[in-house]
Design a protein around this nucleic acid. Sequence first.
RNA 1: GGUUCCGUAGCUCAGCUGGAUAGAGCAACAGCCUUCUAAGCUGUGGGUCCCGCGUUCGAAUCGCGGCGGAAUCACCA
Length: 595
Amino acid sequence: MEIILKKKISEAVKILFNNDIQDELIQLQETRKDFRGDFTLVVFPLLRFSKNTPEKTGELIGNYLVSHFEAISRFNVIKGFLNLEVADSWWIDYFKNIAGGLDPLSAAQVSKPEIILVEYSSPNTNKPLHLGHIRNNLLGYSLYRILSSCGHKVIKTNIVNDRGIHICKSMLAWQKFGNGETPETSGMKGDHLVGKYYVLFDKEYKAQTEQLINQGMSENEAKNNAPFMKEAREMLLKWEAGDKEVVDLWKTMNSWVYAGFDETYRKLGVEFDRIYYESETYKLGKEIVLSALKKNILYQNDDSSIWADLSNEGLDQKLLLRSDGTAVYMTQDLGTAVDRYNDYKFNKSVYVVGNEQNYHFQVLRAILKRMGYEWSDGLIHFSYGMVELPEGRMKSREGTVVDADDLIAEMQDTARDVSLELGKLTGFSNEEKDDIFRKVGLGALKYYILKVDPKKNMTFNPAESIDFNGNTGPFIQYTYARIKSVFRKAEQMNITEDLAGIGKASVGKKEIDLIRLLRKFPEIVSEAASEYSPALIANYCYELSKEYNQFYHDFTILGETDASIRNFRLVLSRVTSEVIFRGMWLLGIEMPERM
RNA sequence: GGUUCCGUAGCUCAGCUGGAUAGAGCAACAGCCUUCUAAGCUGUGGGUCCCGCGUUCGAAUCGCGGCGGAAUCACCA
């Protein structure tokens, strides 16, 4: 529509003012709700051609369009804005088009599909997942759905940080205090069990450090000389040397953690196509670093540590291999990146990683570029903000972390309480109820997190996140469930949709408002894909749901006596529910058929 | 100090390829359940869009300069 309209406007300008104008000067937008009309032309840019007042110019163009373009039925001019009204027949035709089973996503397809890796989650294997990981997982998974819905080939990957001193810490504490405790004997989830020993290590380590400080050591000395730290370091060396006992323990404890993570991932509804382990990629990283050193891309210090000098790119010196030859975080990431390119020859590789690592990824790209990997341009750090609590940042040492499993359970419990209090779901089996509570509780959590702009830090208010009223996931789910209910009722009444009858229906403003919103969907999806922002879709789904709820309250649907009007509303309801479903699906949010 | 990000209603957030009177939700107050789900709908109050300058017919939106906040600049990951 817009394209034809623009053509007509440019034709009008040519005939009225005798000028060929560029497309950019024709600023066409949807008319604001509080004005009469469907599309609005901003006439200011055209004044220099018309050499007339804004009002007069608008009027001239409006008159031309009404008499030369049958789709435009009326117009009005307010200040410099020409509001055009599209004939109802056009809306009906348009609507029949999208109602006839046209996939709302087909318009969002990209012309050149790419191979895109999306890395997300990236847990450490020494403690359970927390609220920050939830944001990461939800963003990553939703990104996957959005990008692949646009036609890209997307590979979901996870890099598990399964090596390093932090793992040895839990292992050591388990050896000292564990008495052979396992997930089976303790009844604890594996990741929580290992996390418990990580905390124990820290506690004991702190005590030891304090003792040494009291004996007169400086803080740094004490930290380095505490027996626990020494033992942990020894353990790391043994691990790198392949010591059987250490490696076996490492394997055992990691397997506990993986089982725990899998459970959390399953509850969250996220999954991966390929998992990389740092214990496997760090060696490649070392090789890359060493060969780059030979080519004089890097330099070596007297203590034989290896560095990259990025100072002429506005970055600092960056350590790549320690003086004892062991790998650091950056070494592993270099290895992982090369590994991945060899595996997939990706066009883009998206890292869903918190903004605290902005610098790290700047450096990663710069080093790869310098090493001659042209594909490094395709590395994208999808940087998201921290999740803070009303009291401030989460601190594991102060016990203010919100545990992922606890939170999920709590959301489901709240969904149950609210639902029962409202007296819903009588006559359902316990399985059916639990399924709905799960969808609603999780929907609330996911929506709450995904609706905010990823790059912004967000505040997680526990009391508010469990609110199910207003701009929330359950509100959107509720809208969907309600539409489903209309259709169940219609079935009972033997009412079926009749697209053919719709032409006779009178098109009201409410209907047009809904259709206008519906037609935006593909545009929103492509925008979300190019901006990497699920939040756009979340806010759209809310807007659509709100619009529908208002529509629903203003009219009866099944009770409408005029069949053509009833059909119009019925089909409109169905299309709305399909788009809502699709939008929420892109966010990874499940929709209950009733609630 | 360098770099990156953020600053919109009491609170949580939309809006940002420049357009009309800046929008939702929460919280407060007032209404609406014999008709398809009230997890809803309607209404009232609430704003120096951090500040200043610039570009423009027009700036919350773009540019520059401040101010405030966050992150980061480790032989941690």
